[in-house]
Design a protein around this nucleic acid. Structure first.
Length: 270
DNA sequence: CGACACACCTGGATGC
DNA sequence: TGCATCCAGGTGTGTC
């Protein structure tokens, strides 16, 4: 499941090979992703020079003179960069070929991903309401505390709301709450400013650690296997329900916040 | 507006 | 061995 660190690593891995190159061809093999891929996407892209590749939340933004391609990896999307055309595998939905011969290939088994064209990223409905990036200074304990005023929702759901903070998924939120010693079901408004400061710090730490891990795990996106699943950073709680807490050895509990599996230590997280 | 259920989708794990 | 069922999860949409 690509979360923010995986998307960031993907970006860093492919950017240097394709920015400044022209798009020579676009192949859509299967247009039904989360939203149908527009029929005219190939004609919009062909002949354009890629000016920049950036990330906003978990969206990859390919910028061109006349607009941008918004790409989301969804739950199972992967990007690979090929040296030359090879036979597509199952779920290889999109190819974008560049003037240097490289082919960017999008594979997405579950098809929760998206590929959309926009002329203006700043006003696009998918992008305009996204909260601050968690790795910027705008995202802080003070910001979280302020945003949590009058919010009754569980702090875990609060953090997974993309309008509050960009791109935090289940894995890293679960881990950050554990690291900060915060019970995931505490109403967001009931958490002190001090504890939010600790939480913001832990969120940044867990994301940075995963990005660093991704960088070392995936040195080379040019290899056919060079696509991130999610990185095996040491997970203390996520996926460890019933196992011993690494801190106090208590059995980790599991419950649901919204529809999301939520694992925590009943002793360390209060 | 906030809170929440639901939908989308496939593959892997589990149960019979 | 094979089939049915469940679950995972990001995030937009609809409802109350």
């Amino acid at each position: 499941m690509p979360e923010l660190p995986e998307v960031e690593t993907t970006l860093r891995g492919i950017k240097k090979y394709i920015v400044d190159e022209k798009i020579t061809d676009v192949v859509i093999r299967f247009p039904r992703l989360r939203w149908p891929i527009s029929k005219n996407l190939p004609s919009l892209l062909k002949g354009q020079r890629l000016l920049n590749l950036t990330r906003r939340s978990k969206y990859l933004l390919f910028s061109f003179k006349t607009g941008a391609l918004i790409l989301h990896l969804g739950m199972s999307g992967r990007l690979r960069l090929l040296d030359k055309e090879v036979a597509p595998l199952k779920h290889d939905h999109i190819d974008i070929q560049f003037s240097n011969g490289k082919i960017l290939r999008f594979n997405d088994a579950r098809r929760f991903g998206a590929a959309l064209w926009t002329e203006d990223t700043s006003s696009h409905p998918l992008l305009k309401d996204i909260g601050p990036e968690p790795l910027t200074r705008a995202f802080s304990g003070d910001y979280l505390w302020q945003a949590a005023r009058k919010r009754k929702v569980a702090v875990k759901s609060f953090l997974m709301n993309g309008k509050i903070v960009a791109g935090l998924g289940n894995i890293y939120v679960t881990e950050a709450l554990y690291a900060a010693g915060i019970y995931p079901f505490t109403p967001a408004a009931d958490i002190s400013r001090t504890r939010y400061q600790r939480l913001a710090t832990e969120i940044k730490k867990v994301l940075q650690k995963a990005i660093k891990k991704g960088g070392t795990t995936l040195k080379d996106f040019m290899r056919s296997d060079g696509s991130p699943g999610y990185f095996s950073i040491e997970l203390h709680v996520y996926g460890r329900a019933g196992k011993a807490c690494h801190r106090c050895r208590a059995s980790l509990k599991s419950s649901r916040a919204g529809a999301r599996a939520t694992v925590y230590c009943g002793r360390c997280q209060t």
